[in-house]
């Protein structure tokens, strides 16, 4: 999991799906995660979650309806634990801008 302070937005209100976020690098020495998003560079750190997260997915509704018909009671909803998240990369520092057009020395 990657945690970012703030949220990601696009300039135009277009859906985010399929869009490119950025490149994630790790430094050789200290395994510091570096995330480059557009012309921003973010330094973060890798943390163990104090309490892990369980990722829950609601079971498909068709199942719930069936069981509702079987028992004639309020439908039972169930969630499946799809994954346990134990680590996160936290980027909580202010992003640094990347200045692109510095003329290169020849």
């Amino acid at each position: 999991m990657i945690e970012l302070q703030g949220s990601l937005e696009t300039r135009q209100p277009v859906p985010l799906s399929g869009k490119f976020v950025g490149d994630l690098h790790f430094t050789q020495q200290k395994d510091v995660p570096i995330l480059i998003i557009g012309h921003h560079i973010l330094y973060g750190k890798c943390m163990d979650l104090e309490k892990p997260f369980a990722v829950l997915v609601k079971n498909s509704s068709s199942n719930a309806e069936e069981s509702a018909m079987d028992t004639d009671k309020t439908p039972e909803t169930s969630y499946k634990v799809k994954a346990i998240i134990r680590k996160k990369l936290l980027f909580k520092q202010r992003p640094k801008p990347i200045i692109a057009n510095v003329p290169k020395k020849l």
Partner: peptide, 21 residues
Amino acid sequence: VVQSVFFSPELDNESYKLLEV
């Protein structure tokens, strides 16, 4: 190794819930 992060084409913020355990 560089990991390029993309939003999934089936990005879905509703179907998952996080539960701290």
